[in-house]
Simulated scan of single mutants.
Amino acid sequence: MPFILKAGTWIQPVNVEQDNYMINDDVLLITQSERANYKRIKEAERYNASVRQQSWEHGGFTFINSLVDLSANDPATIGRLAFLSTYLDFNTQRLQKGHGNPIRKSDLSSILQISKPTAIAFYNDALFSGLVSDHGSEGLYISKTFFRGSADKNGKQTRLYIDTVRDLYHRLKSNQHHRFGYVVQLIPFINKEWNILCENPYESESQAILPLSMKGICGKLRLNENHATRFKNAITSPIFSFGGEEQQLCAIVPTVTNYGRQNTVYVNPHLVYGGSDFTKVEGISVAFKARVKG
């Protein structure tokens, strides 16, 4: 605990030539460990304030476990599950709409905006994969891959922002849901601070990040590398609105290095972000602005 030395007190400081000297005024002494603890508290307060601000601007968020590998699942199923996760109740895993009304199997077609046969296929796939469980009249529950409420302090989760996820999903046709699903499947490879698809997602220094090539990304998703161009169009064409501006789901920034021309893929942080400092990604926001072709 900090303590006060009264004026007139004699002290013997360390690493000072003078043996001792008298304090002329009252002094508040704080140890190095207390100063470090104070710094951690202030950093946590700034982080929490930033998260609250971003949550308010984006209509809240749901979490996805960043360590779960969903690459073996149908990307359309994953995209639809991520959308459904925005209807999660806090700390219960139950999907609900309106004033706490449970979402049931019969609701899937209307909520997901897909045909009844497609809704049945989605239900069976999600159920078989263990990503959804059916509790009858209590409704559908989603696995803890997605959750709302208290999160671990280890930073192994990423936020999916509710308003923008819903807006993007509603703009996609039912046969395009896989495009959003691809990005959700790639969350384990999104750098937490810089939102770059890379080999080292927990690297905090931007200069040390190892971006994934388009073929490398296809490999992570078990896609044919010869379809890299088609995949590029799939993740850059979806559009949503934030702050009154149309934005892309992903942006590809070309660079020229000693190893030749390379592309760096950024995921829009207004949809998906797991970092602690949103100001780090605000500088790339211009890359996501949808442009009218002309």
Rank of each mutant, 00 (worst) to 15 (best):
E246V: 13
I252M: 11
T229E: 04
P211N: 08
S241M: 09
Q248F: 12
N233M: 14
G216I: 02
K220L: 03
L249S: 09
G216F: 01
L221Y: 00
H227N: 10
E246T: 12
S213K: 04
L223Q: 01
P211L: 11
S237E: 09
Q248Y: 10
G243V: 01
G244A: 13
S204K: 14
E203N: 06
K220W: 03
K232A: 11
A208R: 07
R230V: 08
K215A: 03
R230T: 08
S204G: 15
G219V: 06
F240G: 04
P211M: 11
I235D: 00
S241I: 12
T229S: 06
A228V: 12
L249C: 13
S204T: 15
N224W: 02
A208N: 09
T229V: 01
I209A: 08
F242R: 05
I252A: 07
L249D: 05
A228P: 10
K215V: 03
E205N: 14
A234Y: 04
G219Y: 04
P238E: 03
C250D: 03
N233I: 14
S204R: 10
C218S: 05
S206W: 14
H227F: 06
C250R: 04
G216A: 01
N226G: 02
R230F: 10
I252W: 09
E205P: 08
L221D: 00
N224T: 06
R222P: 06
V253C: 12
Q248I: 12
C218Y: 02
V253F: 07
F231W: 08
A234Q: 11
L212D: 01
M214A: 05
G216H: 00
Q247P: 09
A251D: 05
R222Y: 07
E245R: 14
S237P: 11
Q207L: 14
I209R: 08
E205F: 08
R222T: 06
S237N: 13
C250T: 13
G244I: 14
L223E: 00
E203H: 06
S237T: 15
I209F: 15
N224F: 03
E245N: 13
S204D: 14
S237A: 15
E246L: 15
H227V: 04
I239D: 05
F240D: 04
T236W: 04
E246R: 14
P238F: 03
S213F: 03
K220A: 04
R222K: 12
F231A: 04
Q207M: 10
A234C: 11
S237I: 11
F231Y: 06
K232M: 12
F231Q: 04
I235V: 11
F242I: 13
E245V: 14
G244D: 09
S241W: 07
C218V: 05
I239P: 10
L249E: 07
L212M: 02
S204Q: 14
T236S: 09
S237Y: 10
A234M: 11
G243P: 06
I209G: 06
E205V: 11
P238R: 04
V253G: 08
I235E: 01
N233Y: 12
A208T: 02
I209K: 10
K215I: 04
P211D: 12
E225C: 00
C250G: 13
K220Y: 01
H227R: 07
G216V: 00
E225R: 00
G216W: 00
E225K: 01
F231D: 01
S213A: 03
E245I: 10
L223Y: 01
L221G: 03
S206R: 15
I239K: 08
G216Q: 05
A208Q: 08
G243L: 01
R222C: 08
N233L: 15
I209S: 07
R230I: 12
